[in-house]
Nucleic acid binder design. Sequence first.
DNA 1: CATCAAGGCCAC
DNA 2: GTGGCCTTGATG
Length: 326
Amino acid sequence: MDYTSSEELCPVCGDRVSGYHYGLLTCESCKGFFKRTVQNNKGYVCVENQKCRIDKAQRKRCPFCRFQKCLKVGMRLDAVRANRMRGGRNKFGPMYKRDRALKQQRKAQAEALLASPREPTDSTDYVYSELHYGPLGDCRGPGQPRVPLFVLELVRCDPDEKVVQSKIRQSLQQHKLQWKKPGSPSLFSIMFVLAEQTLLSIIEWARTSVFFRQLQVSDQMTLLHNCWSELLLLDLISRQVLKGKEGHFFSSLDMKDGPGAGSGALLECALSSQYMGRFTQLLQCMSEIHFMSTLVEDYLWSKHESGEVLCNSLLIEMLHAKRSGI
DNA sequence: CATCAAGGCCAC
DNA sequence: GTGGCCTTGATG
Ligand SMILES: [Zn+2]
Ligand SMILES: [Zn+2]
């Protein structure tokens, strides 16, 4: 199989993937490392903080952290055979097949969307679902973790996701109907509507949230003006993390003129967040999110100046407020 | 018979 | 120990 075409990287060290190994796509070296470690019951010790960065250049330096990362990304101990029996297939065979089919299907969809910039194909539904605005699954996860009371209070103020989604769907439908230019709505216009409506729901959420609603309105405005783009990004990223296993949309989208062309940073952020639920790690992401938000704002501003965006939009209004306020 | 992931081999 | 390449063998 040829994995060179698809931009698949080893989730452990970032090296080139050579196939499915012990549960997922990894490189040849991590396959061998995992095998040796499990077969020989190797015990490693980390001489640092057990948080060593594992990449292609440094993976040899700390076997402990490397093995820890192998387990973290989902390599399966039970795929290493105790009998050392060679060849054949194990119980993961069907899973590999399904995963492969899924990846290929997604890739084909993305390519179809990108290969037809002028086609009358309507990408509204595709973008909507690919950004994980789709039907809400169980995002809470199985085990109910212990949560501080004030967080519960905040969560209680959450708007009904179904209501939010139905509003967004209505806006998209309306956008589709009102599209005057020939062909179907452009990718940018679709994402603009999505962002606009999402921002509306975010502001509505903020205004009704406990604590925030007790602030003076002028302070509320100042806060929102200052961080609306970060909130939008957080909303977007959280959708990818909670609902999407792979962020193929962005990696394949690579909006040529988009914010931070080939915005790998956001994708990395979303993907790596998949396994980090901790506050400190979230904080570490914030600087990156802030950086992305500046790119997003610059991008929107350029679109606005070139007249490709309606002036009476909330997004542009927020942009103006922020730029004039600073 | 082709596939392809699992184990084996062995220069480095 | 590492990792590129080889051999194996159940599955479809
Ligand atoms: Zn690797
Ligand atoms: Zn370490």
